[in-house]
């Protein structure tokens, strides 16, 4: 048993204080300690991108971050993406409409990656989007539905024509 520390984090706007073992990854902390199991682990070596969260507004691999390193930081996970229990975020809607998910396991990481990307690039090309999600592995979709969804969501977020 390695040492523990008490940390305070804000996740999806909610403050938490917990004692954690210092070797526990942020991904395991979110999933096991806070019960936020929407963040998934696909490879635990920083390649697949399923565990992508946002740390202070920037996407990051939560399998390559220790929970202790998140002390005092703001985290956003997939559970914090939809505006309410009845509504989905435009990117979530677009993913469903463009069949950008099949098994859905990689989807949380895709969402958190693309949300940051669309903030930085409101009017991206298809190539831009492919580059942006090149750090997220999806075995089901061939990425095409994801790319189409991102294009559609970008347009919607810019206030363009719906769908």
């Amino acid at each position: 048993m390695s040492a523990t520390r008490t940390i305070s984090v804000t996740v999806n706007g909610k403050a938490y204080e917990r004692e954690v073992e210092v070797r526990v990854t942020l991904a395991d902390f979110l999933r096991q300690e806070l019960g936020l199991t929407g963040t998934h682990l696909g490879c635990e070596h920083g390649v697949c991108g399923a565990c992508t969260i946002q740390l202070n507004g920037r996407s990051a691999r939560s399998c390559l971050t220790l929970a202790v390193q998140a002390d005092g930081q703001e985290i956003k996970t997939v559970e914090g993406v939809a505006p309410s229990a009845d509504e989905l975020h435009p990117l979530q809607e677009a993913l469903s409409e463009h069949h950008g998910l099949q098994c859905g396991f990689c989807t949380p990481g895709i969402l958190l990656t693309l949300l940051e990307f669309l903030d930085d690039n409101p009017d991206p090309s298809e190539a831009d989007i492919r580059l942006a999600i090149s750090g997220n592995l999806c075995r089901c979709t061939g990425y095409q539905g994801i790319v189409d969804a991102a294009l559609a969501a970008a347009e919607r977020l810019r206030g363009g024509a719906a769908k």
Binding site: T52, L55, S59, A60, L64, F117, G135
Partner: peptide, 9 residues
């Protein structure tokens, strides 16, 4: 260098 998520860190 890597991808957006890895360059962020």
């Amino acid at each position: 260098v890597g991808h957006i998520q890895t360059r962020n860190r």
